[in-house]
Amino acid sequence: PEEVRRLVEELYRKGVSPEQVKKILKKQGIDEREIEKVLRRIG
């Protein structure tokens, strides 16, 4: 979803590592598979 992409990109631009991005967003209840999809697209 758009909102997940925005959150991931925001953290990524701040220099947060992909592993940390995953941890942070998982705590917020976001599906890990969604996060990984976005990270793959960015990375």
Score class of each variant (00 low, 15 high):
residue 33 R to N: 13
residue 22 K to R: 15
residue 34 E to K: 04
residue 24 I to K: 05
residue 24 I to Q: 06
residue 2 E to G: 09
residue 15 G to A: 03
residue 9 E to N: 06
residue 12 Y to H: 06
residue 39 L to A: 02
residue 34 E to F: 05
residue 2 E to T: 09
residue 19 E to M: 12
residue 30 I to T: 02
residue 10 E to L: 14
residue 17 S to D: 09
residue 30 I to R: 02
residue 13 R to T: 07
residue 13 R to F: 12
residue 12 Y to L: 14
residue 30 I to A: 03
residue 7 L to W: 07
residue 30 I to W: 13
residue 5 R to G: 07
residue 11 L to N: 01
residue 21 V to E: 00
residue 11 L to S: 01
residue 25 L to N: 00
residue 37 K to C: 06
residue 40 R to E: 15
residue 26 K to T: 13
residue 28 Q to E: 07
residue 40 R to A: 13
residue 27 K to R: 14
residue 42 I to K: 05
residue 7 L to I: 07
residue 8 V to Q: 00
residue 7 L to V: 06
residue 17 S to V: 07
residue 36 E to P: 00
residue 5 R to M: 10
residue 43 G to E: 15
residue 39 L to N: 01
residue 27 K to S: 13
residue 20 Q to Y: 07
residue 13 R to A: 08
residue 19 E to Q: 11
residue 16 V to D: 03
residue 34 E to Y: 04
residue 22 K to Q: 05
residue 3 E to Q: 10
residue 8 V to W: 02
residue 8 V to F: 03
residue 9 E to A: 08
residue 17 S to E: 09
residue 43 G to Y: 12
residue 14 K to G: 07
residue 31 D to T: 06
residue 38 V to A: 12
residue 17 S to M: 07
residue 16 V to G: 04
residue 39 L to S: 02
residue 11 L to F: 05
residue 21 V to C: 04
residue 16 V to W: 14
residue 31 D to F: 02
residue 22 K to Y: 15
residue 34 E to V: 13
residue 20 Q to E: 10
residue 37 K to W: 05
residue 38 V to F: 05
residue 32 E to Q: 06
residue 6 R to E: 06
residue 15 G to H: 05
residue 33 R to E: 14
residue 7 L to A: 07
residue 6 R to G: 05
residue 32 E to L: 05
residue 6 R to P: 02
residue 21 V to Q: 01
residue 8 V to R: 00
residue 14 K to I: 08
residue 16 V to M: 12
residue 4 V to Y: 05
residue 2 E to N: 09
residue 10 E to M: 14
residue 11 L to E: 01
residue 36 E to W: 04
residue 25 L to V: 01
residue 25 L to F: 03
residue 10 E to N: 09
residue 43 G to I: 15
residue 15 G to L: 04
residue 32 E to V: 06
residue 31 D to G: 06
residue 23 K to M: 14
residue 2 E to F: 13
residue 22 K to S: 05
residue 7 L to D: 01
residue 20 Q to A: 12
residue 29 G to L: 03
residue 18 P to A: 10
residue 8 V to P: 00
residue 40 R to G: 08
residue 3 E to R: 08
residue 16 V to H: 13
residue 37 K to V: 06
residue 35 I to N: 00
residue 25 L to A: 02
residue 30 I to P: 00
residue 26 K to F: 09
residue 17 S to N: 08
residue 4 V to F: 06
residue 35 I to K: 00
residue 13 R to D: 05
residue 8 V to E: 00
residue 35 I to G: 00
residue 39 L to T: 03
residue 28 Q to M: 14
residue 34 E to S: 07
residue 4 V to A: 03
residue 36 E to N: 06
residue 5 R to N: 08
residue 10 E to T: 10
residue 5 R to V: 13
residue 21 V to R: 01
residue 1 P to H: 13
residue 13 R to V: 06
residue 3 E to Y: 11
residue 2 E to Q: 11
residue 31 D to L: 04
residue 18 P to T: 14
residue 27 K to E: 12
residue 4 V to H: 02
residue 35 I to T: 03
residue 21 V to T: 07
residue 30 I to C: 03
residue 2 E to C: 08
residue 36 E to H: 03
residue 1 P to C: 05
residue 20 Q to W: 13
residue 42 I to L: 15
residue 42 I to V: 08
residue 21 V to L: 11
residue 19 E to V: 08
residue 17 S to L: 08
residue 31 D to A: 07
residue 13 R to K: 09
residue 9 E to K: 09
residue 23 K to D: 10
residue 39 L to D: 01
residue 35 I to P: 00
residue 20 Q to M: 14
residue 8 V to Y: 02
residue 28 Q to S: 09
residue 29 G to H: 04
residue 39 L to P: 01
residue 31 D to I: 03
residue 27 K to A: 13
residue 5 R to Y: 15
residue 21 V to N: 00
residue 43 G to R: 14
residue 33 R to I: 09
residue 5 R to W: 15
residue 2 E to P: 07
residue 30 I to D: 00
residue 15 G to Q: 04
residue 15 G to W: 03
residue 16 V to A: 12
residue 38 V to I: 12
residue 11 L to P: 00
residue 40 R to V: 10
residue 27 K to H: 10
residue 40 R to F: 06
residue 33 R to W: 08
residue 28 Q to I: 13
residue 10 E to H: 10
residue 37 K to I: 09
residue 35 I to E: 00
residue 7 L to M: 11
residue 9 E to L: 15
residue 42 I to M: 12
residue 36 E to M: 05
residue 40 R to L: 11
residue 24 I to S: 04
residue 17 S to T: 10
residue 7 L to S: 03
residue 33 R to V: 10
residue 1 P to E: 14
residue 14 K to W: 10
residue 37 K to R: 13
residue 22 K to G: 04
residue 5 R to E: 14
residue 32 E to I: 06
residue 19 E to W: 10
residue 32 E to P: 08
residue 32 E to C: 04
residue 41 R to Y: 15
residue 1 P to A: 11
residue 27 K to M: 14
residue 8 V to T: 02
residue 2 E to D: 13
residue 16 V to S: 07
residue 28 Q to A: 10
residue 16 V to N: 09
residue 6 R to L: 08
residue 27 K to W: 09
residue 1 P to N: 12
residue 25 L to T: 00
residue 23 K to L: 14
residue 29 G to W: 02
residue 38 V to R: 01
residue 29 G to R: 03
residue 18 P to H: 05
residue 43 G to W: 04
residue 32 E to W: 04
residue 35 I to S: 01
residue 25 L to H: 00
residue 18 P to Y: 10
residue 22 K to N: 03
residue 23 K to R: 14
residue 28 Q to V: 10
residue 25 L to S: 00
residue 26 K to E: 06
residue 9 E to I: 15
residue 16 V to F: 14
residue 7 L to Y: 05
residue 19 E to C: 15
residue 22 K to W: 14
residue 15 G to P: 01
residue 7 L to N: 02
residue 31 D to V: 03
residue 37 K to N: 11
residue 19 E to F: 08
residue 1 P to G: 09
residue 41 R to C: 08
residue 4 V to R: 02
residue 2 E to V: 09
residue 13 R to C: 06
residue 29 G to N: 05
residue 9 E to G: 05
residue 3 E to V: 12
residue 4 V to L: 15
residue 25 L to R: 00
residue 21 V to Y: 01
residue 30 I to N: 02
residue 40 R to C: 04
residue 13 R to E: 06
residue 33 R to G: 11
residue 5 R to I: 10
residue 16 V to I: 11
residue 30 I to K: 02
residue 29 G to M: 04
residue 17 S to P: 13
residue 25 L to D: 00
residue 32 E to N: 04
residue 29 G to A: 03
residue 8 V to L: 03
residue 21 V to K: 00
residue 34 E to P: 00
residue 16 V to T: 08
residue 12 Y to T: 08
residue 39 L to I: 07
residue 22 K to V: 14
residue 12 Y to I: 13
residue 32 E to G: 05
residue 43 G to T: 13
residue 33 R to F: 06
residue 41 R to G: 15
residue 6 R to K: 09
residue 6 R to W: 07
residue 21 V to F: 03
residue 15 G to N: 05
residue 26 K to A: 12
residue 42 I to S: 04
residue 10 E to K: 12
residue 42 I to H: 06
residue 20 Q to D: 13
residue 25 L to K: 00
residue 29 G to I: 01
residue 2 E to K: 09
residue 31 D to W: 03
residue 22 K to P: 02
residue 40 R to K: 12
residue 15 G to T: 02
residue 9 E to Q: 11
residue 43 G to Q: 15
residue 34 E to L: 14
residue 27 K to C: 07
residue 1 P to L: 13
residue 23 K to V: 13
residue 26 K to C: 04
residue 34 E to W: 05
residue 43 G to C: 15
residue 39 L to V: 04
residue 41 R to S: 15
residue 42 I to F: 11
residue 12 Y to G: 02
residue 25 L to W: 00
residue 32 E to K: 04
residue 14 K to F: 07
residue 34 E to A: 07
residue 26 K to M: 15
residue 11 L to A: 02
residue 3 E to I: 11
residue 42 I to P: 08
residue 22 K to I: 15
residue 1 P to I: 11
residue 12 Y to M: 11
residue 39 L to R: 01
residue 39 L to F: 03
residue 22 K to F: 14
residue 38 V to Y: 07
residue 37 K to G: 05
residue 24 I to Y: 08
residue 20 Q to S: 10
residue 21 V to P: 00
residue 6 R to Q: 08
residue 3 E to C: 06
residue 9 E to T: 11
residue 25 L to P: 00
residue 19 E to D: 13
residue 3 E to W: 11
residue 26 K to W: 06
residue 3 E to H: 08
residue 20 Q to V: 10
residue 23 K to Y: 13
residue 39 L to C: 03
residue 18 P to R: 14
residue 23 K to E: 12
residue 36 E to C: 06
residue 37 K to D: 15
residue 13 R to W: 13
residue 26 K to V: 14
residue 36 E to I: 05
residue 41 R to A: 15
residue 2 E to L: 13
residue 38 V to L: 12
residue 41 R to H: 15
residue 6 R to Y: 07
residue 34 E to G: 02
residue 29 G to E: 02
residue 14 K to H: 10
residue 25 L to Y: 01
residue 10 E to A: 15
residue 16 V to P: 00
residue 16 V to Y: 14
residue 18 P to E: 11
residue 31 D to H: 06
residue 26 K to P: 01
residue 37 K to E: 15
residue 13 R to L: 07
residue 27 K to F: 11
residue 23 K to S: 14
residue 19 E to A: 11
residue 43 G to S: 14
residue 8 V to D: 00
residue 14 K to T: 08
residue 32 E to T: 05
residue 8 V to H: 01
residue 15 G to F: 04
residue 16 V to L: 09
residue 11 L to R: 00
residue 2 E to A: 11
residue 15 G to V: 01
residue 26 K to H: 06
residue 35 I to L: 04
residue 42 I to C: 06
residue 27 K to Y: 09
residue 3 E to L: 12
residue 21 V to M: 10
residue 26 K to G: 10
residue 37 K to S: 07
residue 38 V to T: 05
residue 25 L to I: 02
residue 11 L to D: 00
residue 4 V to E: 01
residue 11 L to Y: 06
residue 17 S to A: 09
residue 33 R to Q: 12
residue 9 E to Y: 14
residue 23 K to P: 03
residue 17 S to Q: 08
residue 20 Q to I: 08
residue 40 R to N: 15
residue 42 I to E: 03
residue 17 S to F: 05
residue 17 S to K: 09
residue 6 R to H: 07
residue 41 R to K: 13
residue 42 I to D: 03
residue 9 E to W: 15
residue 20 Q to P: 00
residue 43 G to A: 15
residue 42 I to W: 07
residue 24 I to T: 07
residue 15 G to E: 02
residue 19 E to G: 10
